[in-house]
Design a protein around this nucleic acid. Sequence first.
DNA 1: CATTTGATCTGTAACGTTACAGATTTACCG
DNA 2: CGGTAAATCTGTAACGTTACAGATCAAATG
Lengths: 350, 350
Amino acid sequence: MSGSDRVSAGKVHTPQMLDGERPTLKTIAYLTGLGVTTVSRALKDAPDIGAETKERVRLVARQLGYQPNRAGVRLRTGKTNVIALVLGMDAEIMSMTGRMVYGISQVLTGTPYHLVLTPHINSSDPMVPVRYIADTGSADGVILSRTEPDDARVRFLTERNIPFVTHGRTAMGVIHPYHDFDNEAFAYKAVERLAARGRRRIAIMRPPTQLTYSGHTMNGFRNGLRDLGLEEVPFDWIDIESPAAVQKDAVETLMRGPDAPDGLICCSGSSAIAAAAGIAFSGKTIGRDIDMAAKESAGVLPWFQPQIIAMNEDFTSAGRELARALLARIGGTDPAALQSIDMSTWADEA
Amino acid sequence: MSGSDRVSAGKVHTPQMLDGERPTLKTIAYLTGLGVTTVSRALKDAPDIGAETKERVRLVARQLGYQPNRAGVRLRTGKTNVIALVLGMDAEIMSMTGRMVYGISQVLTGTPYHLVLTPHINSSDPMVPVRYIADTGSADGVILSRTEPDDARVRFLTERNIPFVTHGRTAMGVIHPYHDFDNEAFAYKAVERLAARGRRRIAIMRPPTQLTYSGHTMNGFRNGLRDLGLEEVPFDWIDIESPAAVQKDAVETLMRGPDAPDGLICCSGSSAIAAAAGIAFSGKTIGRDIDMAAKESAGVLPWFQPQIIAMNEDFTSAGRELARALLARIGGTDPAALQSIDMSTWADEA
DNA sequence: CATTTGATCTGTAACGTTACAGATTTACCG
DNA sequence: CGGTAAATCTGTAACGTTACAGATCAAATG
């Protein structure tokens, strides 16, 4: 009656479009007797489409299980509905990636966004994947990790005005979204804990120096030492990404030496394990000759060595925060409002 | 001379397409004075394009840094150049995913394929992501894990003729590509090792029963027991995906009981850690009261407890194999030729 | 010389979507 | 009643690519 018996006067619609094929806007247009444009606009709730029409279109779309063709949308609008997670080298990809991916996925579920992994395997240049994404427009937003204080990727993406978020902070005067773990607090508290156990001579297995959080960690460490009047035992010829065997051997050597520390801070779970092994090989005992404080993400450190003072870094939650911030940035939120720092708790202070 | 000064008589080409925008076939067509079709065919080395022309087109394309627009290709041809990695629940996504992703990426680098992660977070139905991929045609191929003996996803993808590969085998009479670890051999050898240390009463922390490799593992385990005349200590109220605390407690209780085993086999690294903790809590000692054999992937187990007999499962290599098989399947290779089983070596038998 | 062949090249249409510039109808105003 | 505004709907063109069905021209054939 009201106008629902109108028939399109345009191109001929063939019923064959109802066959097994995937429904398109054309299918819905045919079924509703509307134009393709109208259907498109109705589905995105445009103001110039009648309420009743919208309802009818939505109903048919739902019944058909219509899902917009991503290639069509992308070609027409440039919107990819893709988030690119840029991954670094072996070390990282193996440890935290799984958990972080899980957190990101939790947030992306229920959005139209897909998660694409973009590792740079052979090229050691971290700019390669970022440039690729920019040049090909293959993502609406980028998640970066292994952030450095002066990060070329951050500069590049900022210049190109491509939404991104970093796991970790920078120090280059560019305001951008980030999520970070409070490694300074971790290191400071670790020193406090070791001091509370009467330890005076502390060594630290630090993150790779080029990463921003390495500096944060060392700040917290040295501030703690200063405030509590403790002494640093130098141990900077390895970092937590050295091969496990190298770390173990280094700790063993250190512990056998004349300047062996009585406290050790480890910035990753795998380092803590290697260190514990090194200590054992040296003939010393954790809890007696030395105490250890460590950050880990798997939650198993306490099972292994209950004596190790463990702090948990939740990469799943980090993934969620990163994804949330990135989506907000894509949506136009001010970068300054999308910066957060996570301070997890120690295993024994829940 | 020879014809390179020919000028297209078709649509007008505007120089503005040389501006900052991303180059397309049209750009190359304009620069070379050829038609868009010719450029397209030249770049894919079609037989009806002259050798000199191809060279010229390739040169210009390279200089411009031309990369085909994926949306355009996908819309026209249906080819997505996407591989979907379907991930399961928390447990799995966290442990092996990182390494497997790394292996997959190694193979995908240098191909036009992107890797998209498709976890099913909230829905517990494993068919959801697979149906989504099929219905939306969002990938050229699928990698499945957590394979079950009678796997609905395998049946579905086979019916729809969508290339896929499974991590793990099925037992449903469907021939499909897979890569698997030889868990039967692992379990059998684990029994042998424990027997060699004089152990007689063996318990096993098995994988979740619904997964195919759980059956393989138990076959190897029981065949080993039979062949060597050992006894099974029942321990099937937990599996390696139970919460770590539950596993630890279960092992502790078992070890305190009257029927405590003198040998324990663990099918994952995290289980081995939990078990070692449970044993310690029970007051018993690995290497004295009981021996442990375990499969792990991180390579750290020996650092922790050198007494544990450790076998390594290489998920990075598994990722490589899965990707290789899938690409071959997409390329049309016979599924029967794309089945492989990995038999890693024990840490002490390199 | 007319014709065929082969080697190269080409325009058109279509994939599914949306921006744009109307078109149509109804309601309202003076 | 003419005119205009508002509400609702529409076709066309374009995004970049490739399948298809020619078109062009020189060389070979009859």
